[in-house]
């Protein structure tokens, strides 16, 4: 197989994900409505209750809306990664997974292409969301779109890998509700997406410790710094490390298994 054949394959997988995404208009709508509700309704209510002190990377006091934007961007990426895992379970149940498994190209390459496609979709959704944030007085510099792109891409790759790993473990489509309760919500709420960790520390030391070990916290911080044109080396290192572990586990789990006694 030549490099051009690998490229055609990768483009084909990305195109398919895009076609599917745009066919499912409700998916785009819900991807935007969910974080916008948090930003417009939830953040407006909590704005007065939760004062945010000066903290890195911000050089001055910020509004609560401004604080939760990176967390909500990561929420979009998290849901997109899990939605993609749902589509893999759907593909397996509907039989279209066989088409992917019949490709002469190596399975790890095909899954990497799938992850790249997921990352592209996440990036696109986050950009659309960021455009909407301008209407609630959250200022995002145009340069931030550029500096945030690599961070969003890495985070999406990590959460997409997590989605792939989960989809290889989920036997039926109905089990996806469990993913919501046991993966998405704990990951999101036990992170710095909605409140700074020092606030959590004041409330509960053990919850703070869990938040510190939650890789999603580092995703949020990586993006927070990137949107501010800065680079958080700790967050970057953690996200890269967990991405390597989770994606390797996902790729290994997708290998055909020996099922026979013979």
């Amino acid at each position: 197989m030549s490099i051009s054949q690998y490229c055609y394959c990768c483009m084909g997988i990305i195109k398919r994900e895009l076609f599917r995404f745009f066919k499912q208009r409700s998916r785009l709508l819900s991807a935007l409505v969910r974080p916008l509700l948090w930003l417009i309704v939830f953040a407006a209510g909590f704005r007065a209750a939760l004062g945010i002190s000066i903290m890195e990377p911000y050089g001055t006091y910020i509004t609560y809306q401004e604080y939760i934007v990176p967390g909500l961007c990561c929420m979009i990426v998290l849901f997109n990664g899990m939605q993609s895992s749902l589509s893999m379970v759907y593909d397996r149940e509907m039989g279209s997974m066989k088409v992917l498994l019949m490709s002469p190209l190596p399975m790890p390459f095909l899954l990497c292409c799938k992850l790249i496609a997921i990352a592209f979709l996440s990036l696109m959704q986050v950009y659309i969301f960021l455009l909407f944030t301008q209407f609630v007085d959250v200022e995002i510099m145009w340069l931030s779109y550029l500096t945030a792109a690599p961070a969003i891409f890495i985070i999406a790759f990590f959460l997409g890998s997590l989605g792939l790993l989960l989809s290889s473990l989920i036997k039926q489509l109905e089990n996806f509700a469990g993913v919501m309760n046991f993966v998405i919500f704990p990951m999101f709420f036990l992170s710095s997406a909605l409140y700074p960790l020092w606030k959590m520390k004041e409330a509960s030391m053990w919850l703070y410790t869990i938040c510190q070990y939650n890789p999603f916290t580092y995703c949020v911080e990586l993006l927070r710094f990137a949107l501010f044109g800065q680079f958080n080396i700790t967050a970057f290192s953690v996200v890269i490390a967990v991405t390597a572990i989770v994606s390797t586990a996902a790729l290994l789990n997708f290998r055909p298994k020996f099922k026979s006694k013979g």
Partner: peptide, 24 residues
């Protein structure tokens, strides 16, 4: 069992399969 993607068109399904085989 049918393995076609119902959401996509005939052309999109066929092009997707071709791409999985590295065909331009």
């Amino acid at each position: 069992q049918s393995t076609l993607d119902l959401d996509l068109s005939v052309k999109q399904n066929l092009l997707y399969f071709a791409s999985l085989h590295g065909i331009s």
